[in-house]
């Protein structure tokens, strides 16, 4: 049976589609955006998060570690160059300061969890959103899940970075979904590579394809990241691309410093992209939104 690695299940989420929803954060993403809001979901394998505030410095984790990767002074420190992700430390941590991020689920297990909030979907016109990470990176599972939810008459949405191979499964997935949020970040391909680690031609190709097929249920998401995507040139280029493609609706995702406060213990060197420590305010967002007025698509909230 198909399984998926899920980074987190966000119950009662209200920003990922209509109504009250459950958002599934798939683990693993083909892009590695410098400003990533959910860096804990970039890698495909389960990782470890550490909440310093909860650690009581008891040392049980160090004692449990088979490769001596953990030292404890007042609180625990893990040397990731030694860590094998056996998760023995997590098993013993009394305070849950150490937690595993990324759990393997069978489809029926996950469906059972998603159905628990069915009454909230019903009363609010909500449903389930596949997000991440990148749901299409676990395409087989995403498809089966979407079909199962559809059978239960539950509204489904996806938040995708657009970087996936088009095939029968992809077609069936997007056919079944009720709502598609499709990210467009940079139009200039060199800049796209610099900011996300990948070329954007596949993304633009998929955008054109999906707009052609499912214009009425597709909304383009534009992350507004100071100095990275939020430049006059880039936003004008995006607007032109959307107009050419025939996109009808777009929404802006204002910058939030979630990524800076991630508790993930990661192997990657900490990127220093000079991002602000505060979420973007309404006024600034409004300025960028003004730039997108007068085009053939609508900017929605």
């Amino acid at each position: 049976m198909t399984t998926a690695i899920i980074g987190s299940i966000g119950r009662y989420s209200i920003h990922d589609g209509p109504g009250i929803r459950t958002t599934l954060f798939f683990k693993g993403c083909p892009l590695s955006c410098l400003w990533c809001h959910n860096p804990e979901f970039q890698e495909h394998y389960p990782e470890i998060s550490f909440n310093k505030k909860s650690c009581i410095g008891c040392g049980d984790c160090a004692a449990a570690c088979p490769v001596d990767a953990i030292t404890v002074e007042s609180i625990a420190r893990i040397d990731l160059s030694l860590c094998t992700y056996c998760m023995a430390c997590i098993e013993v941590c009394p305070s849950k300061a150490l937690q595993k991020v990324g759990v393997e689920y069978h489809l029926d297990e996950l469906m059972e969890i998603l159905l628990r909030d069915q009454n909230y979907y019903l009363t609010s016109g909500g449903g389930v959103t596949l997000s991440g990470g990148e749901p299409t990176s676990q395409m087989d599972f995403s498809l089966e899940l979407t079909l199962s939810l559809h059978k239960k008459k539950i509204h489904t949405a996806i938040e995708t970075c657009g970087f996936f191979n088009w095939n029968d499964k992809a077609r069936q997935l997007f056919e079944t979904l009720d709502l598609i949020y499709f990210d467009v970040k940079r139009v200039d391909s060199k800049e796209h590579i610099r900011c996300t680690g990948q070329d954007n031609s596949l993304i633009i190709e998929n955008l054109q394809r999906l707009t052609g097929l499912y214009k009425e249920k597709l909304i383009v998401s534009i992350p507004i990241i100071p100095t990275y995507t939020a430049t006059t040139t880039n936003l004008r280029q995006i607007a032109e691309l959307l107009e050419e493609t025939g996109v009808t609706r777009a929404r802006l995702l204002p910058y939030h410093p979630f990524g800076l406060h991630s508790q993930m213990i990661t192997r990657k060197p900490a990127s220093q992209p000079q991002l602000p420590d505060k979420p973007m305010n309404h006024k600034e967002l409004r300025q960028w939104q003004n730039l997108l007025e007068g085009y053939s698509f609508e900017v929605i909230n």
Binding site: I14, G19, I20, D117, N119, Y120, L122, T123, S124
Partner: peptide, 13 residues
């Protein structure tokens, strides 16, 4: 709006 939806869902459960 959300408040009322949440109460109703809790009652339905």
């Amino acid at each position: 709006k959300r408040f009322a939806q949440t109460v109703e869902a809790y009652f339905r459960s």
